[in-house]
């Protein structure tokens, strides 16, 4: 359920089909994952999950697995 929410957000921000967001998704697998869209991802995750990412977390979330780890630090298990 939460995994689907996360993948929906990522798909919307990167402009791809949700099926393109694999469990290993990163800038290496998603061509549209550039700095501009990453900033939009930060803001979208904060809005979707009602959290506030720390300064360091904003640059740590550079892959789907790393986003899951950071979300778990906010009490959201994917």
């Amino acid at each position: 359920m939460e995994a689907n929410r996360l993948k929906q957000v990522m798909a919307r921000i990167f402009g791809v089909d949700v099926s393109a967001i694999g469990d290993d998704a990163s800038p290496d697998t998603i061509e549209n994952w550039d700095s501009l869209r990453h900033m939009n991802l930060v803001l979208a995750l904060e809005e979707e999950f009602g959290i506030e990412l720390t300064d360091d977390q904003t640059v740590e979330i550079m892959s789907y697995p790393l986003i899951k780890i950071v979300l778990s630090e906010h009490g959201i298990e994917i």
Binding site: S35, H38, M39, V42, D55, D56, V59
Partner: peptide, 15 residues
């Protein structure tokens, strides 16, 4: 290195 600029800004300017 535009990517590094972006990382440094968003990580450190708010600090």
């Amino acid at each position: 290195n535009g990517m590094e600029v972006w990382k440094q800004v968003i990580q450190n300017q708010p600090k």
